[in-house]
């Protein structure tokens, strides 16, 4: 390759600036004493203080974290099974529909997923009496439905790139297929499982639209609280919250990067 041209590099620099300036500004202004974005009136941690005393926000955050964790765990199991099916079982009956059902949730607008699941839950309640009320369970089911599609993409690409000679050796030695899967395949695809879990966790923690549709009274997730305070305009507490989220993500990425390097 020839040396890279400066127009290309400047577009790249512009792109990164475009992606990061809003985040950097949020962080900066979370330490600003003034409510106004344009005025810097001095360094202050008061928004963080208000944040930790905001009970509604903390309760909704706890609800969101519990939903996200359960969602990620179930989505990793189902998504891995789906990836196994696609990679290991060749052309089974109904494969085209199966692939369609795994791709559609990746691009389907949230409003459609949210509305259609809500109508399903209402219809189910009328016919079989379950779910009795909407909230934790219905939000988790809705999140698993789209998360499992994302997990299957991540796990599938890992299964496709994986070296199968160890599995073959174990099978030659007479190991039961389930033993082979649990003792050899799963450890080999573990990084993808972890990545899939984190992805599902983040997607769930981030979802406003679908949760709003399928939630009921009394179940308010973190994005719903953020949304209602953001609709009122600028809220420095949200800046503080954003800073904490960015810090957590940065730490997670650093740890993941370190553990990858050690491998």
């Amino acid at each position: 390759m020839k040396g890279r041209s400066w127009p290309l590099l400047s577009v790249l620099a512009f792109g990164y600036a475009f992606l990061y300036i809003p985040i950097v500004l949020l962080i900066l202004y979370s330490f600003n004493e003034s409510r106004l974005v344009t005025v810097w009136s001095g360094f202050s941690l008061k928004w963080y203080g208000e944040l930790v005393h905001n009970r509604q926000l903390l309760e909704s955050a706890w609800l969101s974290v519990r939903i996200a964790a359960l969602n990620a765990t179930v989505a990793v199991v189902l998504g891995t099974l789906a990836a196994n099916a696609l990679v290991r079982h060749g052309r089974f009956r109904g494969r085209t529909l199966f692939e369609l059902l795994l791709t559609a949730p990746l691009v389907m607008p949230d409003v459609i997923i949210g509305l259609s699941l809500l109508l399903l839950f209402v219809a189910m309640q009328q016919t079989i009496g379950w779910p009795e009320s909407r909230g934790f369970t219905t939000i988790t089911i809705a999140h698993i439905t789209f998360s499992l599609a994302y997990v299957s993409v991540v796990v599938r690409s890992r299964l496709l790139r994986m070296d199968r000679s160890l599995e073959e050796a174990a099978m030659d030695l007479g190991a039961h297929p389930l033993t082979v899967y649990l003792q050899i395949t799963l450890p080999l695809i573990a990084p993808a499982l972890l990545a899939g879990w984190l992805l599902a966790f983040t997607l769930s923690l981030d979802d406003l639209v679908i949760a709003s549709f399928v939630s009921g009274p009394g179940a308010t997730t973190l994005p719903m609280v953020i949304y209602s305070s953001v609709r009122m305009g600028i809220s420095p507490q949200i800046n503080a919250l954003a800073t904490l989220i960015v810090a957590l993500v940065a730490i997670a990425v650093l740890i993941a990067g370190q553990s990858m390097r050690r491998r």
Partner: peptide
């Protein structure tokens, strides 16, 4: 950036 809240990143543009 994809890993940080989408809602908050859109909100950042209001400011």
């Amino acid at each position: 950036p994809f890993w940080t809240s989408f809602l908050i990143r859109v909100y950042a543009w209001i400011g």
